[in-house]
Design a protein around this nucleic acid. Structure first.
Lengths: 125, 125
DNA sequence: TTGGATATACGAAAGTCTTCGTATATATTT
DNA sequence: AAATATATACGAAGACTTTCGTATATCCAA
């Protein structure tokens, strides 16, 4: 389990790796390039650094290296969420939830999901 | 309204300013120093930079300058929240809510609050 | 009134992140 | 086989953040 927190750019790359599984640098870069102007070697360098940090693994058997995320999306989200709640909402996850709920259009299905989750939490006590 | 996003260190200082209103650098520093090892001039410099950026305002009438946050806590939280949801949860605020709810001990009162909020949202449609 | 404590200003070093040019090796195409 | 395309490696510049030492001014107490 990696402990290092991904930077913003690294997170963008992780998102792509999480969604598309093991892929070459070129693949990641082409998606990234649709989101922002960036050179190929920039993407490459970032991914090399991520490999050093242990954020990704790579298969260097062939000339074209294949990269895959080394940390799970859920684990990373939870880790970043904890830090974010601490830093921005002074540790109050509920304050965050209230703000997120209040300022975003939630569909009926999503609200039902949340109600169900609350139900479940209440029953567990 | 300031547009620049506070860095992590700047956010720590803003937290203190939000909680304690207009205070001198020394005051901020002493709270900060309980949280991490940091020199006085470091805190001072940061707050000076924040003044330049427009994140804080200061009264320089007297020798001891008095600082106050120039951006509201709510506005900043919302701004950071939006960015965070986008970057970490690919724009799905509901996914974030679910994860925050699922992994933190919420009191009965807090859950009631959330239920009330959901109720309110449902009635508005 | 003089020495010590405390204030801001300033500059610059150190760390991190991001970016990309260039070198070199390997594959592919003509 | 030669020219072209494409891959990784490497180094380093530029931007931003964080840190603190030093200079200078002001206040306060003995």
């Amino acid at each position: 389990m990696s402990n290092s927190k991904p930077t913003e750019s690294e997170l963008e790359i992780l998102q792509i790796l999480w969604e598309h599984g093991p892929v070459p640098v070129r693949f990641v870069h082409e998606i990234l390039a649709t989101q922002k102007a960036v050179g190929y070697t920039t993407t490459l360098k970032l991914m090399q650094i991520m490999a050093e940090k242990g954020l990704v693994n790579r298969d260097t058997t062939n000339r074209t290296h294949i990269y895959v995320a080394a940390i799970s999306e859920e684990q990373t989200q939870q880790q970043l969420l904890d830090k974010f709640v601490e830093g921005t909402f002074r540790g109050s996850a509920m304050k965050l939830v209230m703000q997120a709920l209040g300022n975003n259009t939630a569909s009926k299905e999503e609200l039902d999901q949340i109600k169900a989750l609350i139900q479940k939490i209440e029953n567990e006590e």
